[in-house]
Design a protein around this nucleic acid. Structure first.
Lengths: 133, 133
DNA sequence: CTACTATTGCAATTTTGTCGCAATTTGTTA
DNA sequence: TAACAAATTGCGACAAAATTGCAATAGTAG
């Protein structure tokens, strides 16, 4: 995975620097990761650089920003892992990943029946997990 | 609508002040409205008051925060208008409201099949509208 | 190795959101 | 309606989050 992305960066004319690889590593390890989490996990990388690197990753479609609760978090884009949604627990904060064809289908149907051509979508489900219910 | 909410406020032990009604009016007119939009639309209301008022509305389930693009916006809660989702056009910025039972059903199914008790959800569809496709 | 370009850290700044408190407004009671 | 108590608001300071310009550094090609 790291190698694949390293090549993608070079291919697009960007360097696969240690710093960028460090940010990538943190995203891989913590996803979905908030900016604050990434920043604290990378004490040797400047805050501004973390922001700029994440923005670069988003532009290159390596990562994407999703919402869990009321702030966005960063995770690998759908090109590098299966498209999925998050179930966020209000009590313990656990984030569960789910993939459901039915939801995808319903979303596409709804969009096209409105003459809308969907590019992407973002679904966030908030509630209580099995343990906290 | 304003009257209904005025009564709800009083009923809950809060005053329906001019300031609060002004914030409500701005939400009604601009929804979904970003905090910055609300703040600029209400030059005579202090920034802190706008935040406090929106928070109060959210607590009382008069308004809710939703995501369109990458910051949250404020709109009336589902108690005062039909639950819906947004189709946001990348080109012209139009936001289309849609309501689809199929999506709701699929979301509930997915949540419960994971032992998750959903409280609310937020779906945002990004793409191109009929005119801009 | 040298020279050029991209990347990074740093510091300053902007934007966003919060807090305590004094002043004002609102609601109540007489 | 006058006056008091409680709720609400504005103000100013502050804190946190995000962005920017620029100089120093690291990466890359020849």
């Amino acid at each position: 995975m790291e190698l694949e992305i390293k090549n993608l960066l070079k291919q697009q004319g960007f360097s696969a620097t240690k710093t960028r690889m460090a940010v990538l590593g943190a995203i891989l390890k913590m996803q979905p990761a908030s900016m604050q989490q990434l920043i604290s996990a990378l004490p040797d990388v400047d805050r501004a650089t973390v922001y700029r690197t994440v923005d670069l990753f988003v532009e290159l479609n390596i990562a994407k920003k999703v919402h869990t609760g009321f702030k966005y978090r960063v995770e690998l884009s759908d090109s590098f892992q299966e498209h999925h949604h998050h179930l966020t627990c209000l009590r313990c904060g656990t984030v569960l990943d789910v993939h459901t064809p039915e939801i995808e289908y319903a979303i596409d149907q709804t969009a096209s029946s409105n003459g809308f051509r969907p590019v992407r979508h973002d679904l966030e489900i908030i509630g209580y997990c099995a343990q906290c219910s």
